[in-house]
Computed example of a mutant assay.
Amino acid sequence: MPRKIISLFLLFSFVILFVGCTKYAKQEEIQQLNNLKAEVEQLEKEIKAKEQEKASLQNEISQRDQKLKELQSEKEKVQQRLQQLK
Rank of each mutant, 00 (worst) to 15 (best):
residue 77 K to T: 12
residue 86 K to I: 07
residue 31 Q to W: 00
residue 77 K to R: 07
residue 49 A to P: 02
residue 58 Q to A: 11
residue 78 V to L: 12
residue 51 E to I: 00
residue 19 V to Y: 06
residue 52 Q to N: 06
residue 67 K to L: 10
residue 11 L to I: 13
residue 80 Q to C: 02
residue 69 K to F: 09
residue 11 L to W: 02
residue 50 K to E: 14
residue 83 Q to H: 06
residue 52 Q to E: 13
residue 69 K to R: 08
residue 65 D to K: 13
residue 23 K to M: 09
residue 65 D to F: 07
residue 25 A to T: 15
residue 32 Q to E: 13
residue 6 I to H: 10
residue 66 Q to G: 01
residue 66 Q to A: 12
residue 81 R to F: 01
residue 70 E to N: 02
residue 3 R to I: 12
residue 4 K to N: 11
residue 43 L to W: 02
residue 36 L to F: 01
residue 79 Q to S: 04
residue 52 Q to A: 05
residue 22 T to K: 05
residue 45 K to L: 11
residue 53 E to K: 02
residue 49 A to G: 01
residue 45 K to W: 00
residue 59 N to L: 05
residue 42 Q to S: 13
residue 47 I to Y: 05
residue 17 L to D: 09
residue 83 Q to E: 15
residue 74 E to C: 04
residue 76 E to S: 06
residue 40 V to H: 00
residue 81 R to M: 09
residue 46 E to K: 09
residue 59 N to S: 10
residue 77 K to E: 13
residue 41 E to P: 00
residue 66 Q to C: 01
residue 40 V to N: 04
residue 33 L to P: 01
residue 8 L to N: 04
residue 35 N to T: 07
residue 6 I to V: 15
residue 32 Q to K: 10
residue 72 Q to W: 00
residue 39 E to I: 02
residue 44 E to G: 02
residue 43 L to V: 03
residue 26 K to Q: 10
residue 41 E to V: 12
residue 70 E to S: 04
residue 69 K to D: 15
residue 27 Q to T: 12
residue 23 K to C: 05
residue 5 I to P: 03
residue 25 A to Q: 13
residue 53 E to T: 11
residue 35 N to K: 03
residue 80 Q to A: 05
residue 35 N to Q: 12
residue 29 E to D: 14
residue 39 E to T: 12
residue 40 V to R: 03
residue 77 K to A: 12
residue 67 K to A: 15
residue 30 I to C: 03
residue 20 G to V: 09
residue 65 D to M: 05
residue 38 A to S: 08
residue 42 Q to A: 10
residue 69 K to V: 11
residue 4 K to Y: 03
residue 2 P to T: 09
residue 83 Q to K: 12
residue 54 K to L: 15
residue 61 I to R: 08
residue 55 A to H: 06
residue 27 Q to A: 08
residue 33 L to M: 11
residue 36 L to M: 09
residue 2 P to V: 11
residue 58 Q to D: 15
residue 50 K to W: 05
residue 63 Q to M: 12
residue 18 F to W: 10
residue 62 S to K: 13
residue 6 I to M: 14
residue 41 E to D: 14
residue 42 Q to T: 15
residue 80 Q to K: 02
residue 57 L to A: 08
residue 15 V to E: 07
residue 38 A to Y: 00
